[in-house]
């Protein structure tokens, strides 16, 4: 059974149709990336799944249950780390769990340690680097009780070096925890390296243009980005994207 099922969803703001008959699913423990031209309604899709808005038509299902307009059904990692500046790192990473009344400081501490942030538990966000803040933000979403994690272009604001490091770290961490992930990005390479499946959205109104199955085995080594097969897939996706532009 699918973890998340987007069932022919339509959404418009005023006369502006943003999502049109959008349908796809995310399976249990699957890593799915969504790429598409900017302004194609990727963020709107997340807001719908997050329950901030309701779709005009269609249904969003999580574990077979309808979650249209229901807030807090998913765990969320935003584009900017959005750590609360008056909370220490430790207090920040438990926030997602705290909202739902579950606190496990012990798990939090061991996760902070595994993320290479030990010694910073009681530091405030402004004392951490951008990469460290993003790690904290991801730990926060992992510690949240929901089983599906939605990541909204989490690495787009980082520099190239930090981004590569963070991608590797994200993969390692995810492989240990095996949660279902829905990942928005505009970086084809990032999508290919990380995911099991890539969903390409069309320009507005967004609908599923094409789906790609990523054939690489796990665990993945960062060096696969230089293999011929990888580059070939990148090319295919790229040409498909070009049709849209």
């Amino acid at each position: 059974m699918a973890k998340l099922n987007i069932d022919h969803v339509n959404k418009s703001f005023g006369d502006n149709l943003v999502l049109k008959d959008l349908a796809f699913d995310v399976k249990e423990e699957e890593f799915v990336s969504i790429i598409g031209p900017s302004g194609s309604g990727k963020s709107t899709l997340f807001h719908l799944i997050g329950g901030l808005y309701e779709p005009d038509d269609g249904m969003i299902q999580l574990d077979g249950k309808r979650i249209n307009g229901q807030k807090g059904a998913i765990s969320y990692m935003p584009q900017s780390p959005s750590l609360l500046p008056w909370r220490t790192l430790l207090e920040n990473v438990v926030l997602g769990a705290e909202i739902h009344g579950k606190m496990e400081e012990k798990t939090a501490k061991s996760m902070i340690q595994k993320a290479g942030l030990s010694g910073f538990e009681h530091s405030y966000p402004h004392e951490l680097s951008g990469g460290m803040q993003q790690r904290a933000s991801f730990i926060r979403s992992l510690l949240s009780p929901q089983s599906l994690i939605c990541l909204d272009e989490p690495f787009s604001a980082l520099d190239e070096f930090t981004r590569l490091e963070m991608q590797k770290w994200l993969l390692d961490t995810w492989e240990q925890h095996q949660r279902s992930i829905l990942f928005i990005t505009h970086n084809i390479e990032e999508a290919l390296y990380l995911s099991d499946r890539i969903i390409l959205l069309s320009d507005r109104p967004a609908t599923v243009q094409r789906e790609f199955k990523v054939p690489f085995t796990r665990p993945r080594d960062p060096s696969i980005v230089l293999t011929e097969e990888f580059l070939k897939m990148k090319q295919t996706i790229h040409s498909e994207l070009k049709v849209l532009l």
């Binding site: 997340f46 807001h47 997050g50 329950g51 901030l52 807030k71 807090g72 059904a73 998913i74 765990s75 969320y76 935003p78 900017s80 959005s82 609360l84 926030l95 997602g96 705290e98 909202i99 739902h100 949240s144």
Partner: peptide
């Protein structure tokens, strides 16, 4: 807004947003 946005997506109630953010 980013703090409030996160809190809403994470399912926080109005009173949680007020107290915690």
């Amino acid at each position: 807004n980013e703090y409030i946005h996160y809190m809403k997506m994470a399912g926080a109630t109005q009173s949680q947003i007020f107290r915690k953010v």
